[in-house]
């Protein structure tokens, strides 16, 4: 879908993606464009550098929630605050998927993960972090939206949001931030269809979909 959006905008040859550590490293296998690896959580810093050296290129980061919301919180917030002309694609599935389903800052209340086997307790483990609302408050951010991809209609909407984000980047409006709420059925220990139902029932009420800043 991300690639479809780039193809629609005819940006395929001039786009550079930055994928840090996590399941996002598989992005290289799926996306036939220029990609750059970054250290865990540091994709916004690398993307900032790429964009400043080559301002005519389209630059995006493809990050998971353990990466963007936990390890790279500082980089994310400061890149957004500086209003760097990059696009964040933030894949939120509520856990650290690649390392074995550990709890991430975005894990929901009472949600079980391998490091919170009795469910997340808000008193001792804190509240789930709403990253998109957080960065929407920053002046450098031009567009912050939350989307999902578990139904065909939402897939279409999400593609529109990504196209809009890249267009704003081309117009040098500032940072664009697209959060995609998704599942991790192997980490959640569910079948794919069941995981999508769980996502609709539990994730969407806490992470409401739609544009938060436009």
């Amino acid at each position: 879908m991300l690639m479809e959006a780039l193809e629609d905008l005819n940006l395929g040859d001039e786009t550079i993606g930055v994928a840090p550590v996590g399941c996002s490293v598989f992005a290289y296998h799926y996306m036939d464009i220029d990609m750059q690896q970054a250290a865990h959580g540091r994709a916004p810093a690398v993307a900032t550098g790429i964009k400043r050296v080559m301002p005519d290129k389209t630059v995006f980061t493809y990050q998971g929630d353990g990466d963007l919301a936990a390890i790279g919180t500082a980089e994310t917030i400061h890149a957004c605050n500086r209003g760097e002309n990059i696009t964040f694609i933030f894949i939120n599935n509520g856990i650290y998927g690649m390392t074995g389903g550990q709890m991430a800052p975005t894990t929901l209340e009472n949600m079980k993960s391998s490091t919170s086997p009795y469910g997340r307790d808000l008193k001792s483990m804190g509240h789930p972090l709403k990253m998109t609302e957080l960065v929407a408050n920053l002046n450098g951010v031009a567009y912050a939206t939350r989307q999902a991809v578990h139904t065909p209609a939402l897939v279409r909407k999400c593609k529109k949001a990504i196209v809009k984000a890249f267009k704003l980047q081309k117009e040098n409006k500032g940072t664009t931030f697209v959060e995609i709420v998704t599942n991790c059925n192997s980490g959640w220990k569910m079948r794919p269809v069941q995981a999508n139902e769980w996502l609709q029932k539990n994730m969407i009420p806490y992470y409401p979909l739609g544009d938060i800043k436009k």
């Binding site: 059925n185 079948r191 794919p192 269809v193 999508n196």
Partner: peptide, 8 residues
């Protein structure tokens, strides 16, 4: 074999 296509 994730079956999501069958569901939709």
């Amino acid at each position: 074999g994730c079956e999501i296509c069958i569901n939709v």
